[in-house]
Every structure is written in structure tokens, then in C-alpha cells.
Design a binder for these strands. Structure first.
Lengths: 234, 234
DNA sequence: CCGCTTTATTTGTCATACAATAACACAATT
DNA sequence: AATTGTGTTATTGTATGACAAATAAAGCGG
């Protein structure tokens, strides 16, 4: 038999209907981010449901970042926020259980894809070169491996963030979360070469050699995929 | 009734914290879609919050399709509903004025970053070349602009998806949602050149010229920027 | 006129009750 | 004995009420 596809299964949940009613209300009124929404009490009266139902519906939209609420101020439409998106993408990735190499490739694709705009940003603001070189140095000064990992990721984060592309930064942050876990496994022995390659990337970008920077960065990150498997204890 | 008035100054909303705790629980237990989750009452006891809070949190996840619930059966995990999320993101995006150039740059960075792996995939599976060329042709056969937009996005989607990197595909899907909104504004006049460039990209990848493919793709997508300064030297 | 205090409104949280539903246990019937 | 019908019960769905916390707005005193 057909597997019963994921449909309603309890369609008569009021909170779910209410989200669409709220959405319609927003569309009807032509509300924009920043505009005030109905209060919980007003929704109770207008839509004829209880307050818990209203809250379940609004908290769902809140979780998506569509609305923001605060005491005494009521609820207002929020502007789009990619960091919110990352929250549920975290769920998505956690559930889908993507293999390690896919996460790595995603990271490489993201970071290399951003390099062009990092280069552009450096061309417009030469001081970014100094800033990035600072990040390189900072990542090198520490001796504690934990701190080094932090600074290493901070460098890669900075590499993307100076391009000043919001969604890209959010995506990278999300991916980086997964790298904290198995970062230290093979981090040893990459202190030095890591710093050198960081330097090479920044210099290549300064000189406008984006293709070369991409190649170095790809190589720099690909040591993760050295299938070491040092005893899977967990 | 013993523990009351827990001072949570500066504490955020409990329901929001609970969603992350539930996520951690899912990750910890290694739960997969179809597995049973805790009941509401169990969550009340385990996380020390009231049932309304539990419901606000779970209904938010339910709204995303991550959780499915039914009386007497409890809650079970479900792979989440991407369409549902896209629907509300498209809606939310329509309201907000998220800077379009950031979205465009994100898209370009993502797609160009993926090209390397698209090339790798093509090298391993040469039939992907034919598949992508099919997508190119399909995108050209239609005359209706709406359908053309669909097929154009389908090509770009395919370009990333053949690399078989899950998270990257998800990111691209999300970004593409936003492009449906303002795609048609400047789509006219790119029918022909679009097809040619699509072809050039696929051919360049087949021949292993990833840098060239990247350049073409970046140029191919950069026509979206309307009111920005016309052309950088190229 | 300004700064502080009070007030009122709205969200945040908790407790409880009841309804609806579906899985389960068990008895009844064939 | 197997199946079926029925009641029980666990779990979610919804409603109501209450109180705490936070904060914008009003009121007050200097």
C-alpha cells in the first residue's frame, strides 16, 4: 500500500490554521517589517481561539523570525534575518545526518566562492588586508590547541565576513559549527603550514589573484578529508 | 509546587531555549525521522518547564515539519517540510527589503563555489554532461517567460545538485526562492545569451577549465544587478 | 522643563481542567 | 481459538484563569 504521505495527521490543529490567518492578515493590511501586529488578546477576540493557541501560532512564526514580540510593545513584524534561518537549517542538517565529506565540501565551496568578494572588498578598503593579516598573526600566537582552533575558525570566518555578504556569513557560521567537533582530531601538525597558507591566501587576494587564492584555500582545507579514523571511540 | 519563581533575569524565552534543547536531545540520541520523541509530560519533567512552554516549542518545530504529533501516539520525528518553509520565507521576503545585491552575491558565491565539485562529478560520471546539456536545451525550448524562469532556475539548481553535496543544495534552494520574486524584472533579453552561457559553462567544466566556468557563471548572473554601477572592467 | 516614580498594558509562565482521539486490554461472540 | 466489539487509558488539543516580569506611558515632584 501507499505509505501515507506526510499530510495533516490531525488537521484540526487550530494553531496551524491560525498561522495562515495571521499571514493573510499581514497581507491584507499590507504590513511591512516594523509594523505592529495585533496583540495576543486582540487575536483571541478576532479569531475566536484561546490564548495558548494564539501563542503556539505566534511562537512558530517567531521561531522563523517573522515576528518579534516584547512585553508592553506587543508583536511587530520583523525584517528578514538569515541567522534565524540558520537555526532551523541546523535542525535540517542534524536530522539528515550529512556525511563529513559533504560538510567539508560545502565549507570549501562556500569559502572559496566568497573569496572573489573578499578580494573586491580588499580592493576598495585596503585596510582590510592589514585586518586579515592581524587575524593570521593572532591565529599563530596561541599555543593552546583549543585556542588555536578558535582563532583558526575566526580567521576563516573573517575571510568571509569582510566580504560583507550577510547570508553567506550565516551559512558559513552554521557549517563551522560542525567543524568544531572533528577539528582537533587532525589539527596537529598544521599549525605552521596553516599560518603560511593563510598568509598566501591573503596576499594572493591583495594581488588580485583570486584563482590562486581559491586553489590555496581548497588545498588548505582538504587536509580534513585525510581519512585518519584514529579509533572511533564514540 | 515547590519550585516557583525561578529568577531568570535577562533570560530569554523558555520556549525558544527549549527548541535548542530538543535539538540537542535529538542529536544526542541520534534520532532519525520516524523515531519517537518524548511526550509533552516527559519534557515537562525533564526540562523543568510548564506544558504551555513545551507546546510552544514543539508546535514551532511542528510547524517546520520537524515533529509530527497525534493524540495517544506522542510525538515523532519527521524530515522537515522544505516547501512549507519556502512558502513562508518567500512570503516574509516579499515583505522585507533585504538588500538584493547581497542575495545575488550569495547566489553567485554559492554556485561558483560548487562548480569545482560539479566538474569533479562530471569527470567521474561523464553522463552528467549529457544530463546538464539536456537541462540547457529544456530551458531553451520554452517561450513562456514564466516557464523559462522555472527552467532557468532548474538548470542552475542542477548545476549544483549534480555535485551531490546536500547542504550546498539546501543553501542554493533557499537562495533561489528569493530569486523567483524579482527574476522576471530583467529577464527579458537574456533568453538567448542565457542559453549560450549555460552551454559554455557546461563545456568548460567538461574540459576541466573550472576557473573559466566560474568567470562565465559570475558574468552570467551579474546581469541581475540593475541599478548598480554598470560594469566593472572585465 | 527635567528626572524620577508610579501605573497600566502586554507578553511570559504556570497550573488546572476537560475534550478528543487512538492505542491497548479484555471480554464476548462465533 | 480467533476475531470482533467495547471499555479503558494515555496523550495530545484546547480553554480558562492567574500571576510575574518587563516596559512604555502617564503622573508627579523638583
Amino acid at each position: 500500500m501507499e505509505v501515507k504521505t506526510k499530510h495533516k495527521l490531525g488537521r484540526k490543529r487550530l494553531s496551524e490554521d491560525l498561522t495562515t490567518e495571521i499571514r493573510n492578515y499581514i497581507i491584507d493590511k499590507g504590513l511591512k517589517p516594523g509594523d505592529a501586529l495585533l496583540t495576543e488578546q486582540q487575536m483571541v477576540e478576532r479569531f475566536g481561539v484561546s490564548r495558548p493557541v494564539v501563542r503556539e501560532a505566534t511562537k512558530a512564526l517567531d521561531f522563523l523570525g517573522i515576528i518579534r514580540s516584547a512585553p508592553r510593545r506587543g508583536m511587530i513584524l520583523d525584517s528578514f534575518d538569515f541567522d534565524r534561518v540558520s537555526e532551523y537549517f541546523g535542525f535540517h542538517f542534524a536530522l539528515s545526518d550529512y556525511p563529513k565529506d559533504e560538510l567539508l565540501k560545502s565549507r570549501i565551496a562556500l569559502e572559496t566562492g566568497a573569496l572573489y568578494y573578499t578580494m573586491e572588498a580588499m580592493r576598495e578598503k585596503p585596510e582590510l588586508f592589514d585586518y586579515l593579516m592581524e587575524c593570521v598573526e593572532i591565529a599563530d600566537t596561541e599555543e593552546d590547541i583549543e585556542a588555536w582552533i578558535e582563532h583558526d575558525i575566526a580567521f576563516h570566518r573573517a575571510l568571509v565576513e569582510v566580504s560583507n555578504i550577510g547570508p553567506l556569513g550565516s551559512f558559513c557560521d552554521l557549517i563551522h559549527v560542525f567543524f568544531h567537533e572533528f577539528h582537533d582530531k587532525t589539527a596537529q601538525g598544521h599549525f605552521v603550514s596553516g599560518k603560511e597558507q593563510h598568509e598566501q591566501i591573503v596576499h594572493a587576494l591583495r594581488d588580485g589573484h583570486v584563482d590562486e587564492a581559491v586553489r590555496i584555500l581548497r588545498f588548505h582545507l582538504s587536509w580534513y578529508e585525510d581519512d585518519e579514523e584514529p579509533g572511533v571511540s564514540s
